[in-house]
Amino acid sequence: MASEAVLRQRRRQRLGRGAMYGLLGLVVAAMVFFADWEQIRKSFFNVEIIKDMFPEVVTVGARNTIIYTALAFALGIVWALGLALMKLSSVAPYRWFATAYIELFRGLPALITIILVGFGLPLAFGWSIPGGTLGKGAIGLGIVAAAYMAETIRAGIQAVPRGQMEAARSLGMSSGTAMTYIMLPQAFRIIIPPLTNELVLLIKDTSLLFVLGSTPQSKELTKFARDVMAAKVNATPLTVVAVMYLLITLPLTYLVRKLERKAEAEKR
């Protein structure tokens, strides 16, 4: 009796799976028959436009995206380390400041911060950050990235066992020496995967820098694509820069997975 019930259940499961494959087949068939492939090819895969975009999409667009990211990340991580140490400080006002900063800039859209840096400061003080889009963009993004990375770094430092600090201090190290040589090296090992994730987010956020305006030489990938789209009245540039973004971000996400797996293996 029981085995019959099991058989019936199995058959029902097999039928259910068959139905799902059938539905999928229908949808794919419908797409193949009804989609306007010619239109898709012309709009998204126009070979002439693709050819036209090279080499500038790499030498200007991708190059600038990478430069903005690198500079913002460098500024962000230094500032984040400062914030993380403030957040762990025994001096209460430092902790308050770090907490307020982190909550503020994580709570605001990055675009608001970028507009604030790019246009708010000049309007308010008649003074603007030097370095054009690069200077304003890197600082704007760095301010936001620091807020996220500070929390990551703080968590990393706190993940190092307490006994490490005690051992270092009992050998006569000052708290700064112990932090530099004992705590931070271990903390950074723990947080390399999440920090690489922050880097990937930052790469994508450089697309927000279009609001700052740009010269032909300072366009990053998204702005570059939009300008070509407008000029050619065609969506192909989107496909091209999507591939460019993936070429940059996919190796990084792959690296994160590898690092995480390595960290897992070391724990055992």
């Binding site: 006994g163 490490q164 005690e166 051992a167 009992s170 190290m173 000052s174 004992i182």
Partner: peptide, 20 residues
Amino acid sequence: VDGLRTRIGMVFQQFNLFPH
């Protein structure tokens, strides 16, 4: 305190060697 601690060796239950 740091100077005095260099004169006092300390050994912990959990060893607390620096793993890195």
